[in-house]
Design a protein around this nucleic acid. Structure first.
Lengths: 302, 302
DNA sequence: CATGACATGTAAGTTTTTGTTACATGAAGA
DNA sequence: TCTTCATGTAACAAAAACTTACATGTCATG
């Protein structure tokens, strides 16, 4: 597919001059001097080997060839301009792709997202579950929500909420049993999540050095929490991920927890300004997360 | 009509890269290095504020936005290429506009042109009668045929035929009268052409200093010759313009003439190479003019 | 697993294109 | 005839485009 094309800028200058039948008006439209337009048209005529304008000392008129060319060039440049405008319009208003951990997706984002989509009917949100930090260069995601310290390289990260972790389990698991101290967990199965070694942290924070084994079944993503809801043991959850389950009574919080250094962050490509869509999502996310936090701090689980 | 457009070259580079899904192949097609393509695509993505490709370390794949954009850009660039190609094709093969003096047009070119057009059915010839030397900048003419010394500025001029002028008149004008010396013209009306003061030249060349008035009715273009054919007097003609009339007997040549310094030239814009059409016309013109010259030199009128 | 091949990314420097400025020319109108 | 309007051109300046050299990452192969 070899296209033989003259200078595209010269073609553009010709098209404007031909449309206006005036080099001066074309220059105004293109924000250059008339001399630039004159130069471009001359160069184009030379390249083509034929005359596009006849000159009359005080202006120009189109040759027949020039008229034919104008018609086609206008159509082509219109198409380029429309395609470009539509593309940017879509990006502004159309699609938002969110990269997020599986657990966060299913336990917080999906249950809450209805509020965002109903308030922004023109935005189509797609959720890209990914337990690794998004590589914005290799992904279509516009934003990511990620647990961590926020110090990832080459991205901008804005803190959403600091995390507290605590044991949770199904309400039937400890019915009729005494669970008042961390030592009381000895009799139960501790459910672990693969990517977060939080049980060891919790036990250490509670001063437990022996008697309670920090080992147990290993689950991917939010499956540890689902196993806990199914009565298979105790898992460690954070207030964001278990808020709904606590609210509904699927999980209870038998013992206190502690605040982690980590937090959830909204992550965007480094130094890339928000599109309107990303901006809207960012604003909504802060507000909605604020609601979850307020609920939790005012609840019996706090 | 303000179109907001990114760098056209960047769009072109993107389109090629997207079509090939390869920066390297696009670079090959555009005769640049991969680095230039990479730079253009990066700049375009930045301008648009969205990603057109996802990068995978060993190559690229198109985003959905990139796919949409490719579709439109291919259509637009195809149109630009086709319009350009068609235009040059037409110029090569389609149309020839010849600027020529009225007399030459009606007395030589039109009667002979059928040979050219029947041998080149794809070329549409238009004749632009103009008694002044063509200004190629302000005219649609590709070529001109012009009498003169060939030293006009800013054009290329190629000699076609040197001119001889001599008196001609209708066959009935001198019937029963003696016309053997220039002095014998005293009894007749001398018909003048406005732009060429040839009678004075002819009389001087014949050594006539008195007795024959170099004044008479003044005609535009070839009208002096037509008046001569109509029996209104004697006109001075050249072998090219009067060949047909002598051949047909509409004019006779009662007295000899002499060779002028001037000639007919084929005139083209300066330093502009022939298109195929102009080339074909040039070749034909030389051949056809050669025929006229041969006929004249072998005839009783030479 | 190491290495080579393949492909894109980037910065600095070079080349080309594009644009500006100043002056020139020609046509139209008062 | 003079002024206004519009395009043309050459020389110079600025910006865009391109190249070179080096870097990084992925994939395939031995």
């Amino acid at each position: 597919m070899m296209r033989k094309l003259p200078s595209l800028n010269a073609m553009r200058a010709f098209e404007a001059a031909a449309r206006h039948v005036s080099f001066t008006k074309a220059a105004d439209e293109l924000f250059v001097t008339h001399a630039a337009v004159s130069r471009h048209v001359r160069d184009l005529e030379e390249w083509l080997g034929l005359k596009l304008f006849t000159r009359t000392g005080r202006g120009v008129s189109l040759t027949k060839a020039g008229e034919k060319y104008l018609l086609q060039l206008t159509l082509a440049f219109d198409r380029l301009a429309k395609a470009t405008h539509d593309l940017m319009q879509d990006a502004q208003e159309g699609e938002l792709s969110v990269s997020v951990e599986e657990a966060f997706a299913s336990r917080w984002l999906v249950p809450h997202l209805g509020g965002f989509t109903s308030a922004h009917k023109d935005i189509e949100v797609s959720i890209d579950p990914d337990d690794t930090l998004v590589n914005f260069r290799a992904s279509q995601a516009n934003v990511a929500i990620r647990y961590g310290l926020g110090d990832w390289p080459d991205v901008d990260a804005e803190l959403l909420v600091r995390i507290k972790i605590f044991p949770v389990c199904g309400p039937d698991l400890i019915k009729g049993r005494k669970v008042e101290t961390p030592q009381d967990l000895r009799q139960f199965t501790l459910l672990h999540e693969e990517s977060k070694q939080w049980w060891a942290h919790w036990l250490r924070a509670e001063g437990i050095t022996d008697g309670v084994e920090p080992r147990g079944p290993m689950f991917q993503g939010h499956l540890a929490l689902e196993a806990a809801e199914a009565g298979q043991g105790l898992a460690l959850g954070d207030q964001v991920l278990v808020a709904e389950a606590l609210k509904e009574g699927w999980l209870i919080k038998p013992l206190p927890g502690f605040r982690l250094q980590g937090a959830y962050y909204l992550v965007t490509p480094k130094d890339v300004p928000d599109t309107a869509t990303v901006r809207a999502f960012r604003v909504w996310l802060h507000a909605e997360m604020g609601k979850t936090e307020r609920w939790f701090s005012e609840s019996e689980f706090s």
